[in-house]
């Protein structure tokens, strides 16, 4: 099924209907009639998208969707390919399946993610895989792969899962992290891992660490090979030096349980 975005909205659209579960089994006319939230109005999907074909495992969404929010909301299976940019809250509540964005993604990629994989070939905004404000828990599983850079607070309070950033990461990466893995192939921003309880933050560049992180040792973390080989297979720019290490291990945050770790490549 193909959804071609044919004109840019003046205000953002909430398109939580663009998800395999809601489009499966529907005709083009039925899909066109599904409601979108456009400002304070409900408008039919056909007002912004030209629909062609039926859903057979993949939804191709074309156009500049940077003002289209919540694509892939709650999806549990299937595949969405966004041939362009995607708006905020991409893959919110996703538990399975795959979303591929060929351009950039807005803020709040995959809040409440518990399974599946999101791949963004460009950059992502702030709060990738982050807990919503007021929530104690971020993503609980799944994978978010960003080939470009990501903004602040990536992996805020993440509980499980993998976030990989091919470029640089903004400030407060892994803040409040409970567990899971945040791998940044570029640079970490300031105050990474602040208040983290458990979990792993990895970077291939030196990083300014908070004083509440203590140096443990220089070693080759075997488990990291599994992650990096996995990311390499998925097309991320992982080099042999990343896989072989060694890494400097820091434990923190000492103001919490001190069970988290930051691994910095020390090639």
């Amino acid at each position: 099924m193909k959804l071609a975005f044919h004109h840019r909205p003046e205000v953002p659209i909430e398109a939580e209907v663009i998800t395999p579960e809601k489009l499966a089994g529907l005709s083009e006319a039925e899909v066109s009639a599904l409601p979108l939230q456009y400002g304070n109005e409900r408008v039919p999907l056909g007002e912004f998208f030209r629909v062609s074909g039926r859903y057979e495992g993949e939804i191709l969404v074309e156009g500049d969707l940077s003002r289209v929010k919540m694509i892939g909301s709650g999806m549990s299976a299937g595949r969405i390919v966004v041939d362009g940019d995607a708006g905020m809250h991409l893959g919110v509540g996703m538990s399975g399946g795959e979303i591929v964005v060929k351009g950039n993604a807005g803020d709040w990629v995959a809040p409440d993610l518990s399974g599946g994989r999101i791949t963004i070939h460009g950059n992502a905004g702030h709060l990738v895989g982050s807990a919503y404000r007021g929530s104690a828990m971020g993503i609980r599983g799944g994978e978010i792969l960003i080939h470009g850079n990501a903004g602040n607070e990536a992996g805020n309070a993440m509980r499980r899962g993998l976030i990989a950033i091919g470029g640089d990461c903004g400030d407060f990466g892994g803040v409040n992290m409970c567990a899971g893995t945040l791998i940044v192939l570029g640079r970490l921003g300031a105050r990474c891992g602040a208040s983290m309880k458990r979990g792993s933050i990895v970077s291939m560049q030196p990083a300014p660490l908070l004083p509440t992180f203590g140096y443990a040792c220089r070693y080759e973390p075997l488990y990291l090979r599994l992650y990096l080989l996995h990311l390499k297979r998925l097309g991320m720019s992982v080099g042999e030096a990343h896989i072989e290490g060694p890494y400097r291990r820091y434990s923190g945050d000492a103001i919490e349980t001190n069970r988290g770790e930051i691994l910095l490549l020390d090639a």
Partner: peptide, 13 residues
């Protein structure tokens, strides 16, 4: 010990 869950498989460190 630390658990890691990757690609459907759980590992222990």
């Amino acid at each position: 010990q630390i658990a890691k869950f990757l690609d459907g498989r759980r590992y222990w460190r």
